[in-house]
Design a protein around this nucleic acid. Structure first.
Lengths: 212, 212
DNA sequence: CCGGATCTCAACCCCAGGGTTGACCCCGCC
DNA sequence: GGCGGGGTCAACCCTGGGGTTGAGATCCGG
């Protein structure tokens, strides 16, 4: 595989030069140009037709989101990886919607950046952990602690969680790779134990337990 | 940097063996064990404490989502990368919510898989392009689920709240002093508007809206 | 080794719940 | 006056969910 050709864009000279230097040390990465604002970035992409554009979000003239949009529109062969100081809610989504493949924060190390560039060139997408967490939203880490007192068996808790996700019995059966009869049995048991009448009450119960 | 220690889990022997062979050829990847079902995967993770678990979604005993949840709960030091044949809507989100770091389809090449494993071990997350696209689309409209923007009439919201309290249709009818037919009408309307299938999903919807 | 708990499954019954259609009233707005 | 939307109701159908019984498999602690 030949080296991934990259254009770097950042308005801060220190950051830009630092990035270029760092990336040049990485095997498989080839920095072909560096831009100091969005317009220049778009121009340089047109000129060099790189595999990836590594671009800062906050830039004068034309910001990262706008640059991303233009590049994706005019040069579908060039993937975009966004680099930013803050994993700020607003711009993140805008950039991703504009077609960015990857999203990194500036505390990423050289290897991480390199990996992201390689991945982008291959059509994969790498996200900063924090960004992915936000993207997935309901990252509410479950608390296996207090539901111990419910008297439910592990299997019953699993079933309850799936009920709370709005799945039907057949869907639950498929998910757990058991027969529907088994699912019904578990459900009847947990209804009896928790004094529930139907799955609607079960969903409410699950939410109160913090299962969803 | 030392090699990334990986446990592979897939119920299909061919796939599993193929993966192990492929991965062993990659520099920086160390396959320490291979499991043929979810339970075995969880057990092997406990035993070897690897950096990453590469797991298939569809497996007997305990599927990929379940395995992911358990591993993330019991072994926070082990990241999970999911591998699947089809980028099916449902399971993808479940897996990611369960704590998966990466998501690949089986048409990924060895290098892509290797990159994903490296990234996961470093706390980054790699997603299959298609999966990311879906994720972004989904996040694009995160909250049409606002009381005001839900398009529900006051009466429908009232009914929804009572459903979330676990009341049956006849109980709701008595409470609102209307006939059961009326209640069913309201329910059908709100199901259509909020794209719900049954009252169980309605309860979950109500909780997410903050109605209970 | 036996009893209890858990998980698994099958067959059956019954009805609440969900889908559909069509109807009437009342109110606000054009 | 006419039109639309919200609220009210009835009749129908039929699937899925909930209840029951009964039974085999496994595992574990006494």
């Amino acid at each position: 595989m030949s080296a991934v050709r990259v254009v770097v864009a950042d308005d801060q000279t220190v950051v830009r030069d630092g990035l270029v230097t760092l990336l040049k040390l990485l095997p498989g990465i080839d920095v072909v140009a560096a831009a100091s604002d969005g317009e220049e970035a778009v121009r340089l992409v047109a000129e060099h037709n790189p595999d990836v554009l590594l671009v800062d979000l906050r830039m004068p003239k034309c910001d990262g989101v706008e640059a991303t949009r233009r590049v994706r529109a005019d040069h579908p062969g060039t993937e975009v990886v966004v680099l930013t100081t803050y994993s700020d809610d607003e711009s993140v989504l805008s950039a991703l919607r504009a077609g960015a493949r990857g999203f990194l924060t500036k505390d990423a190390d050289a290897e991480s950046i390199g990996r992201a560039l390689q991945a982008a060139a291959a059509g994969q997408s790498i996200l900063d952990a924090e960004v992915q967490r936000r993207l997935i939203e309901g990252a509410a880490t479950p608390k296996p602690a207090d539901l111990a007192g419910s008297g439910l068996t592990p299997r019953e808790i699993e079933v309850l969680r799936l009920i709370a996700d709005g799945l039907s019995n057949t869907e639950i059966a498929r998910r757990l790779v058991v027969s529907e009869a088994t699912v019904k049995t578990h459900i009847n048991h947990l209804f009896a134990k928790a004094n529930l009448r139907d799955r609607a009450q079960a969903v409410a119960y699950a939410y109160r337990l913090g299962l969803a």
